[in-house]
Simulated assay, not measured.
Amino acid sequence: MNAPELTTIRSAPKVLLHDHLDGGLRPETVLELAEQCGYDELPATTASELAQWFRTAADSGSLELYLETFAHTVAVMQTPEGLARVARECAEDLADDNVVYAEIRFAPEQHLEQGLSLDEVVEHVLEGFRAGESAARVAGREIRIGCLLTAMRHAARSREIAELAVRFRDRGVVGFDIAGAEAGNPPSRHLDAFEYMRDANAHFTIHAGEAFGLPSIHEAIAFCGADRLGHGVRIVDDIDVAGQGGAELGRLANYVRDMRIPLELCPSSNVQTGAVAALSDHPFGLLADLRFRVTVNTDNRLMSDTSMSREMAALVETFGYGWTDLERFTINAMKSAFIPFDERLALIDDVIKPGYAVLIG
C-alpha cells in the first residue's frame, strides 16, 4: 500500500463539515468584488499579496485577532451578485479538491448592509451553491452542498436565525450554528434558539471548546443539546494521559465519546488561533486513537491557505496515517452530516468506500 501523498490525496473523496463561506474566498474575487462595490480598505492590491496578508494576519495565536480578518471578506459580500458568486466559487473549488459532500456555514445577519433581507441573503447564497454544483457536474465532478446558518454569539438574533434555518430547511439549509468569540459569550445565552431547533426536529452544531475550555463544551452538550461540536479540541483537557501510553477519560470526555458526538476538528486553524501550540501538539492523534468521532475540516480556507487535501496531508505527515485512517475520518464525517440517513449511507457505499478501495488497493 502506497503512503498517502498530497497528489494522491487530492483524488480521494472527502467530506467537509466545518467551513465558513466568508473564510474561503478566492483572493482575486475579493479584489474584484471590492472594486465593484467601492470598498477601498483592502490591505493589498494584488491577489498574491492579499493571500499572503490573510495568512499572516490570521497567524496571530488569538481567536479574537483571527476573527478580525473577516471584516474584509464580509464587506464584499453585501450584494446579490457578490453572495451568489462567492457561493458558486466555493462549490467549484471544493469539487476541484474532490470534496463530494460539504456543509458550508455563514451568518446571514452580517450581510444586510446594502438593504438585503435575511431571506434574500439566504436565497442568493443557495442560488450560488446550486450554480456551483451544476458547474462542477459539467466539469465531471459531483458535489453536494448543504448550508448551515450561523448566528453570532455576541449578538441577539440567534432565535431569528434559527427560525430562518427552519424556514429554508427544505431548500438547501441543513442546520444551525453559533459562532464568534467564545469567552464571555457562553452558548447557554442562546437557549431559546436551540430549544426552537429541537422543537422543530432540526439539526444544529455549536462552536465550542476552541478558544475556551470544558465549560463551553459542557454547556453546548448538556444545556443546549448540540448534535456536533464545532472544533471541540479542548475536550482533551478532560483526558489524563498516563506515562505508559494509557489514558483516563473524565466524565465529559467519556460522554462525548460514548454518545459519538462528532468533533469538527480544524488542525491548521487551531494552530493559528492558539487553540494548540503546533500541529504536533494537536490532540487529533490522541482523540483518533481513543476512537472519538473525529472529522477533518478546513474552517477557513483563505485564512489558513488550505484545502481538505492539505489538511489530510498535514495529518499524514504529523501522525503517520494511511489510507484506511483517512477513509475512517471521511466516513466519520459522512455519518455525522445533517442530511437523511439513507442519503448519507448512499454516499458512503456508492462514493466514499469505492473511492478509497482504489487507493487502498
Rank of each mutant, 00 (worst) to 15 (best):
N2I: 09
N2V: 06
N2P: 14
A3P: 04
A3I: 12
A3C: 08
T7F: 10
L16P: 01
H18D: 14
H18N: 11
L21H: 07
G23H: 07
L25W: 02
E32C: 08
A34S: 11
E35H: 07
D40W: 05
E41G: 03
A44P: 10
A44Q: 14
A51I: 05
A51E: 15
A58W: 02
T69P: 01
F70Y: 12
T73L: 02
T73V: 03
M77A: 06
M77K: 00
Q78A: 02
T79M: 14
V86W: 01
E92C: 09
D96P: 00
V100K: 01
E103P: 01
R105H: 06
L112M: 09
S117L: 10
E127W: 08
R130F: 11
E133A: 11
G146F: 00
L148P: 03
L148G: 05
T150F: 03
R153F: 03
R153G: 09
R159H: 07
V166L: 06
R167M: 12
F176H: 03
D177R: 00
A181G: 12
A193H: 04
A200L: 00
A202V: 05
A202N: 04
I206M: 03
H207A: 14
G209R: 10
E210G: 13
E210A: 12
H218W: 15
E219V: 08
A220I: 03
L229Y: 02
L229G: 02
G230S: 07
G230W: 00
V233D: 08
G245L: 09
G245K: 04
L249Q: 11
G250L: 09
G250I: 06
R251K: 12
L252C: 08
L252G: 06
L263P: 05
L263R: 06
L263V: 09
L263Y: 07
L265M: 15
P267H: 09
Q272A: 13
G274S: 10
V276K: 01
V276E: 10
A277E: 15
L287N: 11
T295Y: 04
V296G: 09
S307Y: 07
S307L: 08
A314H: 10
E317Q: 15
T318C: 09
T318N: 04
Y321G: 10
D325M: 06
D325P: 07
R328Y: 08
T330R: 01
A337V: 06
F341T: 14
D349T: 12
I352E: 13
I360P: 00
I360L: 13
